[in-house]
Design a protein around this nucleic acid. Sequence first.
DNA 1: CTGAAAGCGCTTACAG
DNA 2: CTGAAAGCGCTTACAG
Lengths: 343, 343
Amino acid sequence: MATGREIAQLCGVSVATVSRVFNQPETVNEETRERVLRVAKELGYQPNESARALSTKQSTMIGLVWDTDHRRPDWRHPYLQDLLIGLKSALSAHGYHLLMLATSGDAREIGASLADPVGYVNMTRRHHLGGLVLIDSGSDAEAFEAFAQSGVPCVAVDVAVDGPKATYVTSDNVSGALSAVRHLVSLGHSRIATITGPVGNQPSDARVSGYRKGLQEAGLPFRDEYVVSGDFYRASGNAATQRLLALDEPPTAVFAASDEMAVGALLAARAAGLRVPQDLALVGFDDIEIASVVDPALTTVAQDKPGFGVAAAKAIMAMITGGGREQPVVLPTRLVVRNSCGS
Amino acid sequence: MATGREIAQLCGVSVATVSRVFNQPETVNEETRERVLRVAKELGYQPNESARALSTKQSTMIGLVWDTDHRRPDWRHPYLQDLLIGLKSALSAHGYHLLMLATSGDAREIGASLADPVGYVNMTRRHHLGGLVLIDSGSDAEAFEAFAQSGVPCVAVDVAVDGPKATYVTSDNVSGALSAVRHLVSLGHSRIATITGPVGNQPSDARVSGYRKGLQEAGLPFRDEYVVSGDFYRASGNAATQRLLALDEPPTAVFAASDEMAVGALLAARAAGLRVPQDLALVGFDDIEIASVVDPALTTVAQDKPGFGVAAAKAIMAMITGGGREQPVVLPTRLVVRNSCGS
DNA sequence: CTGAAAGCGCTTACAG
DNA sequence: CTGAAAGCGCTTACAG
């Protein structure tokens, strides 16, 4: 590995000049600049990022807090891959890399977990990370507040956090849910139930609001027994649907707050001998891959999955360079009509 | 941020001693060691990783080469999340983090792409990464050879690379495919076709071998027209199935080299008015989420998805500490019988 | 426009 | 068992 000093010697300049060529090229004489550049290229020079970070007190890395709890291997993010694709490409555009922080799970003191956000914050400082992106694996979102308060720039996905340098990105869940209910209403349904996410979960709560709004708008009564909560995963959607179908006056349509739960609902309906959409109409939320593959294909509220990553990257970069807190980003959703509601 | 020097002063020792307390604790007097530890804790001391890396010339990070080509946003890894879960947890156990390297896609010189592996290798050197994990996004696997030859420790997932410090992890694709065919044969099928991945793709080729072996074992003839190639994605499975069904003597069973293609096959069969499994039996490969959710649920050859990550982490750690090249890891597969073959 | 010098915070032979 | 010193490879005021 060639170093700046070697280049300096070969070019007959000081290391300071070499450094300037890469960091403030406009301040150095064109001729010398080109000479340095040429030699650097010949030697295959790569600046030592550790040295640079040590000196500038900042690295070109953003940390990712994704708590994969080993005790809950079944907790998965519904669209991690798309999120990462968006995040990575937007970060790359700024010359930043994504560091997936190690979580404990074993005795190593190096790890961290949401139960102990300090661990992550410490990692952030150790590595001079520019900031943290927090993704909600489906629970423990409360812990995010601690990050937001820590003062390190952070942006949460789907969790409304607040802090001196914190913000978040989320979908417009209210209007997403609203569009789902409107669709159902337009198809003539009046007995519309909903399967929610965990109570207290923000996107879930917002979707419930949208659901209420939709009923209201249509002059439909809000019935407590038509709101049953799940945990975003399939099994809970199945169980919730069984309860709904056991009602004296069962719903003719169900809006599930996630596609996974909608699939659970589909399975439950099928098991109960009901046809979808004829006997029960279904709308999901997310538009993940399985939505298009179940039979009937699921009508659902699509989220802009890579958009989350892109927005998160933008927000964090803005906070790093700008300093202050950024406005939360609310991404639009889009109703994707397939076959689970009839046409 | 407290530094080692501050601790040293407060404890009345030298920074060298402080450093030793953390790196070779056994070499320092127990009493001083505890004093240093206590003060470090009080100050919330976090060693500066940049300084450490600069000094030791190695970081505690492993790079991940995952080429998300912006021109092909549809290229997705079938089980990235599980892979990452396994990788991250196994790496954490060694105190390592995973750095998702930025890829170009824009004009920034910082990026890299598989078309230019040098970019990734340069990143590796800049950041003193311990090594690289290469995951195959479905193509360009040839480029991995360049990494393997570069001398940096690397382990590829599902691509057989070779080099001074390179190895790979893959499933036992031959016997996986064999188990699929055996299953079909046991059900009485004799006209068994296969939909392969891209020709030249190693896992795909191995699955074809397993397929041949299965036929041979059963005394069934190998027919060229029963082997049609796809690209692992759904649409190709659909198209391939259409061709198979158009044959004079169409197969009664299809072994697809991926679940996605099997789903495509399912769709094609349905579109052709065939019932699965009665008119056409289907076996997939991977056991991704959609396999259990399609109707009929897909019988498939399950891969140990987190196992890939764990094995990759182990191999890379072994190469970092050991130095030499490691043996390739071949993970067992498991036939998951569901409903797409009839029972 | 350029250089000399100090400094970033560790680690590691080398002495003792 | 411990300390003084050099060194890792950059960046950045400060002079000139």
